[in-house]
Design a binder for these strands. Sequence first.
DNA 1: GAAGCCCCGTTTTTT
DNA 2: ACGGGGCTTC
Length: 747
Amino acid sequence: MDYKKELDKLTDNQREAVFDESNVCLVNANVGSGKTTVLISKIIYLHYVKQIDYCDMVVLTFTNKAANEIKERLTMLEENLNMEDLRFFGTFHSVALYLLRELLMVDQLGYQKDFFVIEPDEEVDIALRIIQEEKLKIKYKNRLKKRLEQERVSRYQDDLIELRERLQKEKVSQNKMTFSDLLLNTVHLLKEASITPKWVIIDEVQDSDKMQLEFIDALMNKNTRIFAVGDPNQVIYSWRGSAFNVFYTLKDRYQARELSLSVNFRSNISILEVAKCFLQNGGRLTGNRERGNKIIVKRQYDSFQEACYLADRIKEIHDTGIPYKEIAIFYRLQNQSTILENVFSKNGIPFDVSLKKTIQDIPVLNWTMKLLRFAMNEKDISSGIYVLSHKDYGERITEKAAAKLLKGCSDMSHLNHGDMFSIDLNFAEKEDFFEESLLQRMLSFRKRFSKVEIPEVDEIYQYFSFDTHLHPTAASYQEDKELVKELLRTLITYINEHKMSFLEGLQDFINSSSLYGVNILNKDINNEADTVKLMTLHASKGLEFSYVFIIGVNNGLIPLQAKSFEEEDEERRLLFVGITRAKDNLELSYYTNPDTYRTMAGESRFIRMIPKHLIESDDIERESVNLQELKRQILAEKNVKMDMIKNSDNSTKTLLEDNEVDVEDNQVEDSEVQVEKMNEEVEVREIHSTHNGNELLTPNELPVRKVSHAKYGIGTVTREDDLMITVLFKAYGKKEFMKAFSELKEE
DNA sequence: GAAGCCCCGTTTTTT
DNA sequence: ACGGGGCTTC
C-alpha cells in the first residue's frame, strides 16, 4: 500500500513523533524540519495503521491554505476519499462553523441554523449605527474596533459597555456571527454537547490565541488525545493575540510529552549559521546540507538605487538558468513594494506582489455583496441601509431615510412578501418609486428565484437593473460592469460546483466569501507562475526560495521601533523567519539615505549581531562607492552631537569630546576603520537620544561600568534603576534587561 | 469656536 | 515626527 511509502520516507527523529504513543504530544519543530510532513504522516499513521476513522479526528489549521494542503495530500493516497469524511479538517473557524450548523443547538443562543458569517468591518458598521440610533456617547469612534476588542471596562467614561450589549443583541436579531463569535459560541455550546473526537491534531500551534486554546479544550474529553506541532521561534503574530508561550501552557495543562525536530533540511550551512544568531530559545538547530555561499550584506544609497540594482541582479541570476519563481524579495512594510513594482515593470522583470485585495476593497463589489446579503436576509438592516444610501450606486437617499424605510418594512414583516409592497409609502414619494425600487427588488428576490433553475448571469444583472445603479455615464461604468458580471459568474460557477439549488448556493457563497475569501480576479499571489515574488516578511512564513533578498535592514524598519523587549524579540523572530526562507543564497541590504524619517541611516543592529566571518564582505563596493558620502555622514553626525553638547552641561561635554573623531585627519584611513568610528559616533548619539534634557548621563554614572552577558558579550551600563538595567553592547546596541533575570556579570 | 494641551497611534494580517 | 481627536480655557 502507498501509505507505507509515505511513512518510510521519514527520518528517525520524525518517525519517533509519528509513532509516539503518549496521550498528548507536542512537537517542537525547528524551522525547515518537516513539520507538515510529520503532521500529515501522523494522520496517515493513525488512519491506516491504527484504523482511526478520519471523522474521529479534528484537524485544526490557521489558514485555509494549510487545510487544503493536508486534504490534498490525503486525497493523493486515496482517490475516492469522500470529502465528507474530512468534515472536521479545516481552520478553527471553519470547523466551528460546521459544528454550529450541523451539530450544535444555536437556537439556544437565539440564532437560527442559517445564520450569516460577517466580516470584521461589518460589526463596526453595525456598532456605529447603534450609536447613532440610540444616541450613545462613544469616544474615539475611529478606534472603535480596537476598543471593542480590548476594553472590558470603558476607559473614557462613555457608553462602551452598553454598546457592546446592544451590539450582541443586534447580531442575534440580524442572525449574524463574527469570526470570534463562531469560536465563542462553539465553545459555549460544546460544554453541553456530546461531541467526542478521538484525536485533536493542531498545525502551527504556536499561533493559537486564548480563544483557540479554549476551543481545543472544549473538544477534549477523557479519551481524547492531542498531537500538535509548532515552532516557538516562529511566533510573529503575538501582536494580534497569539497566547504567550503556548507550548508551556499546553504542556502544563495536559501533562504533554514534548519531542523536538532539530534538523533543518532546507538551507545550506552558511545560511543556518546566520539564522542561529537570531534564535532565542537556545534550541539546537542543525543542518544536513553543504556549506554553500556566504550570505551577502549590501549597503544601498536609497530604495530607488536599490530597486535598479535588484533589477540588474535578478536578470543576472535568471541568465544563469534560475527561474524567476525561485527568487523572492522580503520587506517589513507593504508600501515598500511600490518602488520595486515601478522599476521592475520598466525593466521587464516579471513579478507578483502578495497583496490582500478582497472584495471589500473594490467599492462596486462590496456594494453588490451587501445587496445580495440583504436580498437573502431582510433582517440584515445594516446591509440594506448601506445599499440604499450608497452615494454612487444607491437610491440617493440618506442613511437616516434608508433606516426609516427599512424600519417600515420590518414592522410589516408579519405580512407575507406579496403584501409588503403596499406598506407605508410616506417614505417613498410616489408609488412608482417604490414599485420599481431597488428595495422592492431585493425584498422579492427570494420569492422570484426560489423555484428557478440556476439563472444566467444576465438574468440576475437585469433583475436588479444593475445598469441603472452603476450609471452608464460614470467614468467607472465599464470597469464596474465587468467586475459585477465577473462576481456573478464566480457565484454561478460556485453553485454549480457545489451542486446546490440557487438560493442555497448563494447563501453558502455569501458565507464563504467572508470565511474563505473568494478570489474574483485571481489577485492572490500565484505560486506557480514564473515570477519574482515580492512580499512582507510576515507573508513569507511557510515558503522557501533559492534566492532571498531582505531589503531595508535599517534600525527603525527591521527592527521597527519597538516599545518593549517583547516587541523587539518579535522583530528578531521576524527576521529569523525571513532568513530561513532561503535555500541557497541570501542577501541583506540597508540604506544610507532612507526615504522616511522613521528609518535611521546605516545598518541595523540586527546586522551587527551577525559575526563578520559569516558575511561576504562588501568592501570593494564600500571603497569605490564613496568616501565622500561617508565623510558627509560623519560631519552630519558631528553636527547633531555638537547641538547636543550645546544643550547639555559642561561635564557631559568633556566626556563627549574624548570620543570625538577628527574627520580631517582620518581621510586616508581605510573605509573599514571609518565605518567603525562612525558606528561609535552613532552609539554616542543613541545614548543621548534616550536621555533628554536633565536626564542626561552624569559623569558619575558613565566612567564606566562594564558588564558581560553570555550571548551579547561585554557592554557598558548606560542606565539603571531598581527594576531595569540598560546596557550598550558593541555588537548589538542597546538592550534593556530586567535585573532579576538579566544574568549579567560585572567585569 | 479658536487656541493650546494631552493622549494615542503609526506596522505586520488570518479567519 | 506628526496628525487626529478630545478636552479645557477664554
